[in-house]
Design a protein around this nucleic acid. Structure first.
Length: 156
DNA sequence: GCCAACGTTGGC
DNA sequence: GCCAACGTTGGC
């Protein structure tokens, strides 16, 4: 089983929104970055564990846990001219963009702010893309070591 | 294939 | 709201 971190803007889709989806989960559509697409399409599997991260907000940080709730399948919003994420170059016969579903597990007892995570950026979290300069991946891999380390920060 | 222009991300 | 960093686009 693999570990991931998913960013989401809480004003658009928060951990509470994910909770409200229940066991159905949420199709993680709109990813339009090839590096992220490759991870979604080629590496994510049902049951993989997810750190749910709030970005672009007052206190960015990890706020909850989730899991991958479907295998990868084509992102149909790319085929819909009315959709915000429409991409005329994604051919239904050869889809360019993929998604997986994500399902809520739980809130963290204490959210872990990015500022806290960054204080460990010189140590075990040095290779976490989240703390690397200029990183903009909305979906990124987390190693088992990083996962354990981050979750220990939940209970200071 | 180069690279300038542009749009987006996301912390602050 | 600012702006650094980055990915993508498209002219040449």
């Amino acid at each position: 089983m693999a570990y991931w971190l998913f960013k989401s803007e809480p004003d658009v889709f928060s951990i509470d929104d994910l909770k409200a989806r229940g066991s159905t989960g949420e199709p993680w559509d709109g990813v339009r970055n090839y590096q992220a697409r490759n991870m979604l399409r080629d590496q994510m599997r049902i049951g993989d564990a997810v750190l749910f991260y709030h970005s672009n907000c007052a206190v960015p940080g990890v706020v909850g846990l989730a899991q991958i709730a479907s295998g990868p399948y084509p992102d149909a919003t790319a085929f819909d001219p009315q959709a915000h994420y429409f991409d005329s170059k994604s051919d239904p016969a050869n889809p360019r963009w993929y998604l997986v579903k994500v399902r809520y597990i739980r809130h963290l007892a204490n959210p872990i702010p990015l500022s806290e995570i960054k204080t460990h950026a010189a140590g075990p979290l040095a290779d976490l893309p989240l703390v690397r300069r200029g990183n903009r991946l909305s979906v990124m891999p987390v190693t088992p070591t990083q996962w354990d380390y981050i979750l220990r920060l939940e209970h200071p």
